[in-house]
Design a protein around this nucleic acid. Structure first.
Length: 357
RNA sequence: UGCCGGGUCGUCUAAUGGUAGGACAGCGGCCUUUGGAGCCGUAUGCGGAGGUUCGAAUCCUCCCCCGGCAG
């Protein structure tokens, strides 16, 4: 089979490449230039050259051709501009969601020869084919599972995707890397927003939006207790950057119009925690679950899933009731639904509601 | 200016003659392909000058500063 492999220079995609190579496929590796670190180099070190070096080394060792595809413009248009707009609107974006759906499995597909039957990546997720439909399933490694970030793919994208390491746990992938004697076998896992690398999110925000001083108000007393550099530096549930003593303090509400951050203490569960929210712009990978379905939901990437019940308010709005509560539910974040190991799809959180206990 | 009260890490607060400790903030690390959260680890302080004492944040004197009551 003719396969395009997305190679990042990290361990996971390198192992994926070697697995496919061993299976005898006709593969070509592609390194996507999506880093905007050249623009942000003054903010910190940029490791992207190192990524490319490793990608080259891996390909040389495996005797696989490597192509470098510049996608910075597409990345800017589809991911970075969205990120900045959302932050400015006081919401909390998830750029990596669109990095997958609009760039890696989006713009990239338009750039390559259609004769590539599959596009493989190093994601921790599995795909099951049933009756000509493709279903996304969780990785056996609950921590590394990346179905959350893939929930916004379309059926056509899923049909063409291949996740060779999806059946493994991280430690097995590390072991395979060792057995393949990969040049990057001990490289640290990447983390953070992919286009920022080591750049701090706060610095990115500052570069694009500057500072806009406003009041910090105690949510219980409604009294001003301090000042902050701008509402867009804060998200719901955030502790860091408040700078007040006698805490810890957590952001519980933002007033964008008046540029006010409301804070509370952790022990104030009612003010700080949320357990009900609405979801819009939903993408279902396959069948649409019925109103009243008992599912699981992830509010963020990670192992934790909440049992939940869903209810359609109308065709485009889904009401979600969590079994449990989460103090970091923020508008703009994604909610991704699961039925057992099947990832059903997800949508964007539009608001959250405090429910009295 | 004739009267009281008070000055301890960045902030808040302990130690009342016997090694200045904690919390929060900060910083560093871990975790995590989003934001956050969480976990671990850390620097920094007795307003100043004298005095009493084996020993002073603590007791005494003076000075400086900040509140408040007098004006």
């Amino acid at each position: 089979m003719k396969i395009a492999v997305l190679l990042s220079g990290g361990v996971d995609s390198s192992v994926a490449l070697r697995l496919l190579k061993e299976q005898g496929h006709d593969i070509t590796a592609f390194y996507l230039k999506i880093w905007l670190q050249e623009e942000y180099s003054f903010l910190g070190d940029c490791p992207w050259e190192e990524d490319l070096e490793y990608a080259r080394a891996v390909c040389a060792q495996a005797d696989v051709p490597l192509q470098v595809i510049p996608l910075q413009d597409e990345y800017w248009d589809r991911v970075v501009s969205y990120t900045i707009k959302e932050i400015k609107d006081g919401r909390t974006p998830n750029p990596d969601m669109f990095c997958n759906s609009l760039v890696k499995f989006g713009a990239f597909l338009d750039k390559i020869d259609p004769s590539y039957e599959k596009v493989a990546s190093g994601h921790y997720a599995t795909i099951e084919e049933k009756n000509n439909r493709f279903y996304l399933k969780r990785s056996p490694d609950a921590v590394k599972d990346q179905t959350y970030f893939l929930a916004y793919l379309k059926q056509e994208q899923l049909a063409r995707a291949l996740f060779p390491i999806g059946i493994y746990e991280k430690k097995q992938v590390r072991q395979l890397a060792k057995e393949f004697d990969l040049p990057n076998q001990v490289r640290k896992d990447s983390q953070g927003i992919c286009f920022l690398g080591k750049i701090k999110f706060k610095d990115f925000v500052k570069e694009h939006l500057g500072e806009l001083p406003g009041d910090i108000v105690n949510f219980e007393t409604m009294k001003k207790v301090g000042t902050h550099p701008g509402y867009y530096y804060y998200t719901i549930g955030q502790r860091e950057g408040i700078g007040l003593n006698a805490g810890p303090w957590y952001v519980v509400r933002k007033d964008i119009v008046n540029n006010i951050i409301y804070i509370s203490q952790k022990k104030d569960v009612i003010a700080a925690y949320r357990n009900e929210f609405n979801v819009t712009k939903i993408n279902w990978l396959n069948e649409i679950p019925e109103s009243g379905s008992a599912l699981h939901v992830k509010i963020r990437h990670g192992a934790h899933r909440y049992p939940c019940a869903i209810e359609y308010t109308d065709a485009n709005l889904l009401s979600v009731k969590l079994q449990g509560s989460d103090k970091g539910i923020a508008a703009g974040q994604f909610a991704v639904f699961y039925d057992g190991d099947y990832c059903l799809g997800g949508g964007i959180i539009s608001d959250s509601i405090t429910v009295e206990s």
